[in-house]
Write a protein that binds this DNA or RNA. Structure first.
Lengths: 106, 106
DNA sequence: AAAAATGACAACCATTTGGTTGTTTTTCTA
DNA sequence: TAGAAAAACAACCAAATGGTTGTCATTTTT
């Protein structure tokens, strides 16, 4: 298994998706993010680390607080891949149709 | 850790994304899919099982072959989530602007 | 100055993940 | 009909994942 830390893997975890959703409204510190999740602050911090590493959030120190801010441009990678895959899939009969049209012509 | 087997987790793995890409051009059997990947056919079969379980591909028996066909409608979930998150994020200053406009009025 | 809050760091743990090899059954082909 | 091909089944393995608890340093708050 190769070292992976990309956007696809980052959004695979439902907790991380909820964190992103929460941060999409505005910056929050780690304790605030942890609110309403039934897990420890340390677990949240680990998720934050992963999101930060793949560029979906940025951090800034503010006294003793670590403020996290969403930066969701990186999600384009995901949309791009999905769009491309669906495009290919929608055109999957093109070759067959071209062949059929060709034989019809003969 | 809760039992997860959703589309987000399915596309988190790069090998599975490549399988989807390959299948988006048309149906293939497991051996054909395994071509060009440096891993065993059994490993491919496991990935296929996961993709099948979350509805991204369907299977059909054809003699001794197991034919896999992409069914990429399920990827809408991903696009929807990304779109929603980015929308919220783009509007993240709305509340602040509303507040500023309000105070300006007074 | 004392107490509380924030979060970093580390060690640990169970489960999942992505892969392997070996065996067996079924189906196709020479 | 004998052998090859396709894939299912099972057992195994190392590393990654998502979580825990405990300790410590630094800021705030009272």
């Amino acid at each position: 298994m190769i070292e992976r830390r990309d956007v696809f893997q980052a959004i695979a975890d439902p907790t991380r998706r909820m964190i992103i959703h929460k941060l999409s409204h505005g910056p929050l510190n780690i304790t605030q993010i942890g609110q309403d999740f039934g897990i420890s602050k340390q677990a949240i911090a680990k998720h934050i680390k992963i999101l930060n590493e793949c560029g979906l959030i940025t951090m800034s120190q503010k006294g003793r607080q670590q403020v996290c801010e969403a930066r969701l441009d990186g999600l384009d990678q995901v949309t791009d891949w999905v769009t491309e895959s669906r495009k290919l899939w929608n055109n999957r009969f093109e070759k067959l149709e071209a062949f059929l049209n060709n034989t019809k012509k003969q």
